[in-house]
Design a protein around this nucleic acid. Structure first.
Length: 269
DNA sequence: CGGGGTTCCTGGCCGC
DNA sequence: TGCGGCCAGGAACCCC
């Protein structure tokens, strides 16, 4: 389940491979989620950027600057290959000058491909309303506290919404809340909690990038390699195991339709 | 416009 | 061994 660190790992790998490369042909799986792929044909990649969990391929095109937007969903994978792409889970591929291919595979089809005029994100409402990048100076404790306290929803729900901060999914939400000592169902943050949660989000994501992401099952980077951050998780998926900070067994409950793990002693309401 | 519910998908796993 | 049922869950979408 690619979140910001996994997408950033892929971006770092794809950017040097695709810069200044032209797209000469394309194919898409017959589903509206991928049918935009051929609209990128004729484009030339300027750079590969990322916003939250979205990859943004900036394209120069005769019709003006375009953006190829790719969201990996739960099981999406991107790779550059020399072989012609094929396989049961292939959802889109693009032929590149130099006899190479960019391929997008996605077993569960939760991913998405869109081609839009640069910056025109109306067709992707979550992208259009995305909160600040966690590593941006705009992601302050004050912003986090104001955004969370403005709503009556649980802090974890707010993190997953992408509107308060970009790129946090279920794994890193549980990790950051645990590290900050904030209860996932809390509906208000004190200044101190907001500072700790901001720092925890930044640290958890930064460390995960340094370890090339978390591979629980499906995630692979653009080279087909697993990340190693799964060996560093303190909380996510460890319900029933002792909290590594206090020893109490971690608990599990569903919040916002997501399995949530937390420590009832370290994360008081 | 915020918020709640529903839908999309398939492989892996569990219990019988 | 075979199989039905359940689970994982991000974001679009619909409706109030």
């Amino acid at each position: 389940m690619p979140e910001l660190p996994e997408v950033e790992t892929i971006r770092t790998q794809l950017d040097p491979l695709l810069r200044d490369v032209s797209i000469t042909d394309a194919w898409s799986f017959p589903s509206a989620k991928f049918s935009d792929a051929p609209l990128a044909v004729g484009g030339r990649v300027r750079e590969v950027r990322r916003r939250g969990k979205y990859l943004l391929f900036g394209l120069d095109h005769v019709s003006g600057p375009l953006e190829l937007v790719v969201h990996l969903g739960m099981t999406g994978r991107l790779a550059v290959t020399e072989q012609a792409p094929s396989g049961p889970h292939l959802r889109a591929h693009w032929s590149l000058e130099g006899a190479r291919h960019l391929r997008f595979d996605d077993v569960r089809r939760f991913g998405r491909v869109a081609v839009v005029a640069q910056g025109e994100h109306a067709a992707l409402p979550t992208l259009a309303a995305l909160g600040p990048e966690p590593f941006d100076a705009a992601f302050t404790p004050e912003h986090l506290r104001a955004a969370v306290n403005r709503s009556t929803r649980a802090v974890k729900t707010q993190l997953l919404s992408q509107r308060v901060v970009a790129g946090v999914g279920n794994i890193y939400a549980d990790e950051a809340l645990w590290r900050a000592g904030v209860h996932p169902a809390a509906r208000r943050l004190t200044r101190r909690q907001a500072l700790q949660l901001r720092d925890a989000i930044v640290d958890v994501l930064g460390e995960a990038i340094a370890h090339k992401g978390t591979t629980l099952r499906d995630y692979r980077d653009a080279a087909g390699e697993r990340g190693t951050n799964q060996f560093r998780l303190d909380c996510y998926g460890r319900h029933g195991e002792p909290c590594v900070r206090c020893g109490d067994p971690l608990r599990r409950r569903v919040i916002d339709a997501r399995t949530t793990t937390w420590c009832a002693r370290c994360q008081r309401r």
